[in-house]
Design a protein around this nucleic acid. Sequence first.
DNA 1: TTTTTATATTGACGAATATCTATATGTAAT
DNA 2: ATTACATATAGATATTCGTCAATATAAAAA
Lengths: 99, 99
Amino acid sequence: MKATDVALICKALGDSNRLQIIELLSTGEKCACKMLEKFEITQPTLSHHMRILRECALVNERKEGKWTHYSLNCSTLSAYRDFITGLTCDAATQKECGC
Amino acid sequence: MKATDVALICKALGDSNRLQIIELLSTGEKCACKMLEKFEITQPTLSHHMRILRECALVNERKEGKWTHYSLNCSTLSAYRDFITGLTCDAATQKECGC
DNA sequence: TTTTTATATTGACGAATATCTATATGTAAT
DNA sequence: ATTACATATAGATATTCGTCAATATAAAAA
């Protein structure tokens, strides 16, 4: 995963509502109408956030009749996790802070 | 680490320049003047980015004469890493995508 | 003490963002 | 066909953001 993709994902997660949405979706696929109940935002605002989360490929969307179901995109999430996991302090910095 | 702290860090990493700064610092402590050479931004802009990275505690600062040296904050980085690592798809979502 | 060097702060500006209301679109039920 | 429901889009607005030029501060060198 490229650094620009990572930055885009970080920007998406940099909003508290969107981070909470991701945490909610980590418990499983959710319908937009159910998600709306959990947040103090209007329906258009939720729709806006979901578009941002989709555009950076963090979430998938599944339409079923008039409902839209959202779920985490496993591969994007895991690539992102791998990138962040790779961000570590060098040996000297670690020695300095004693961690 | 609280979700609001995570969101703040994500927001900080949501700018390409700042993400590259973190990647640079992961190779060890750097002086601001050396960092400036690596990016196509002015000195005040770098100073601005470093303030944001310090305010979310991702980086430490060490003053030595007229120089300022920046390094990653191990404990913040590791707490952040742990949070992101904990973000996983649920079993059903994983089954669906076949990962 | 004057000058140079490294960094921070201020103030300005255009671009991007989060949010809302109002409205449109699409689907199912009556 | 009409109505009700779920979601998306459009347009508006206030706020935040990234950047720069100009200036301030602070430390070392001359």
